[in-house]
Design a binder for these strands. Structure first.
Lengths: 166, 166
DNA sequence: CCCAGGTCCATTGCGCGCAATGGAATCGTG
DNA sequence: CACGATTCCATTGCGCGCAATGGACCTGGG
């Protein structure tokens, strides 16, 4: 064969870490769904509630930085949490650009019902605590690398980029 | 302190592998976006095209099993790929329940433009090939565990379950 | 042949994610 | 104070993901 080495085909689904991550996250979501259904929450709503259980009375911006989400996602999500009676959304009186999110009494109370969720998920993952910690650290390293990349290349305009400094 | 040991708070965002996976997948998507924009594809569309580049002329069902997606997601996605001129959707003549997806000539040709994508992503991830393979295997193990769980517990009805065989 | 059950795809409805846009409030500089 | 720049949130539009439902088709038992 003249072809010296059939190198691994990078365009093959099974070769790609990204697809593995992508599909695993979907399965995680399906695993969470029945658990969170009992709390009346979706997974992103559950994440927002976790932030609030850590630190009540935060701005939308702070929530977004914590969850890596923007207002286009958070505004309707928080409105649904408010409609469910779990949080209140009020303009900050000192800086009216900001909206502060605070737990209601039912919102705080929901925490105790949520405590069994991480246990169930850990069990379903088939990992022990050691493996989980290690895997989390490795994935986090990837996230940090991607994050740094995305911040260092801010100007990728849609088409015909203007070359500025050569 | 009477509290003997403040055990790690499982309801804390930073403790959770799931949130790390979730947010990493979103950053991956943002990293893919500008690359795939040049191909006129979204990430899920890119995944579908990868399957077709591996094996042309597959059914919607086979695609769904490969990507772990259902027809509710795939039907509109494939219609968009068809509208873009990359695939054709035709009923199987021998079994008209099935719809077969086949690449068009432009669809096949797009593969060469896609070959640089995995390279860019690998670079952005900050991993070497060894680390990537290892990480993929570990995440895959989690996915398999979740998948087994989800298949073994098929009947989680919304409320009041009917007990049938005791 | 007939019909009950199962398979396969399409549709609907809802909740994200995110780019893009816009408006209101605040800040910085003079 | 004036005013341009910036910050923060809301809105719009689009593409997933998925549960639920339905319709067309096939299959197997009688």
């Amino acid at each position: 064969m003249p072809q010296p080495k059939k190198r691994v085909d990078a365009l093959h689904l099974d070769e790609q870490l990204c697809f593995t991550l992508y599909s695993t996250v979907h399965l995680l979501n399906r695993t969470y769904r029945p658990l969170l259904e009992e709390l009346g929450l979706t997974y992103p709503q559950y994440l927002a509630m976790m932030v609030l259980w850590e630190e009540d009375d935060v701005t939308v911006k702070a929530l977004g930085e914590r969850l890596l989400l923007d207002s286009g996602t958070l505004t309707p999500l928080l409105k649904r949490l408010e409609a469910a009676g779990l949080v209140k959304r009020e303009r900050d009186m000192l800086d009216e650009r900001q909206v502060r999110i605070r737990l209601t009494t039912p919102g705080r109370a929901l925490r105790s019902k949520a405590e069994c969720v991480p246990v169930s998920i850990l069990e379903a993952s088939g990992l022990d605590v050691e493996e989980l910690r290690d895997l989390k650290a490795r994935v986090l390293a990837v996230r940090e690398a991607l994050s740094a990349r995305l911040e260092e290349e801010p100007p990728p305009p849609t088409a015909s980029r203007r070359r500025k400094t050569g």
